[in-house]
């Protein structure tokens, strides 16, 4: 049986443990042998995106060391997975590095493309809007971005469509960025907040009870905006929805 590791991004470990718990529980219920390497920290994305890739050598090597022995690495964050896949070219491309970069998956992509799951027997009786994580969508090809001309597909949507009593709502701007962008959220605070407010508005106008995503970082930003505005709309990571009542 494949040995899979759980990669829990630093901020999920510290701020949103429930998301990682939902992820590991979900994967275990699906019969996977999941291990959480307990000395993991961070992939280094905040440092790289801030322009300090030159400082990341140790961080990246440590990341690879944690995960090289596993057949697959799964994470509830498209953005961090994308960073490893797309940006880890600054370290020497040893076999371990190549192996990890080729076998690291965002959760929904793994469920869809590798496990080929078609049904969860899960129930979530709410109005839910999908906020597409840009790095999942455009970086990991986990769906067809609205700019690209071709056949529509979306891993997260296909999974959520199998959830009983869940009503999907679809904003007009299907995949507009939420404005988080890591350090962008503080360096360009005004633009970031405005983008986030607009994005929240797209879902509030559809009476969405929940905004869900493959990335908790987008949701952290949107949640901050919703809470400050005392909105009725809440955020929930997709793993938490899919882990509601799995009866596999």
């Amino acid at each position: 049986m494949a040995r899979v590791a759980l990669f829990v991004p630093c901020y999920i470990d510290q701020v949103y443990p429930q998301v990682a718990i939902a992820t590991i529980e979900l994967l275990q219920k699906l019969g996977l042998d999941v291990v959480y390497p307990t000395n993991q920290t961070c992939c280094g994305q905040p440092i790289g995106n801030a322009g300090y890739e030159c400082e990341l050598n140790d961080v990246a090597h440590r990341f690879i060391d944690q995960f090289e022995e596993f057949d697959a690495v799964i994470s509830p964050s498209g953005s961090c997975v994308h960073f490893v896949k797309a940006q880890y070219s600054f370290i020497n491309q040893s076999d371990s590095v190549k192996h990890v970069r080729n076998h690291i998956y965002e959760l929904c992509d793994y469920l869809t493309n590798i496990l080929n799951i078609k049904n969860f027997n899960t129930r979530f009786p709410h109005r839910v809007g999908i906020h597409y994580s840009c790095h999942s969508l455009r970086g990991l090809d986990s769906g067809k971005p609205s700019e690209i001309i071709g056949e529509d597909y979306s891993n997260i949507q296909s999974l959520l469509e199998t959830v009983q009593d869940l009503t999907l709502v679809h904003p007009e701007r299907k995949d507009e960025c939420c404005g988080f962008g890591g350090t962008f959220s503080v360096d360009e605070s005004a633009v970031s907040v405005k983008m986030g407010q607009d994005r929240c508005g797209d879902f509030e106008n559809l009476d969405a009870e929940y905004i869900t995503s493959t990335d908790m970082s987008c949701l952290m930003h949107l949640d901050g905006i919703l809470k400050q505005a005392n909105s009725k709309t809440q955020v929930i990571h997709v793993a938490e929805i899919l882990n509601q009542t799995v009866t596999s």
Binding site: Q14, V15, P17, A20, I21, Y36, T38, G196
Partner: peptide, 25 residues
Amino acid sequence: TKWTTGRDLPDLPKKSFRDWYLKNG
């Protein structure tokens, strides 16, 4: 302020995921 102008800070949990994992996972 760069974060909290327009956004609330997230509520912080007592335990990290790693804490939970070592106990329950």
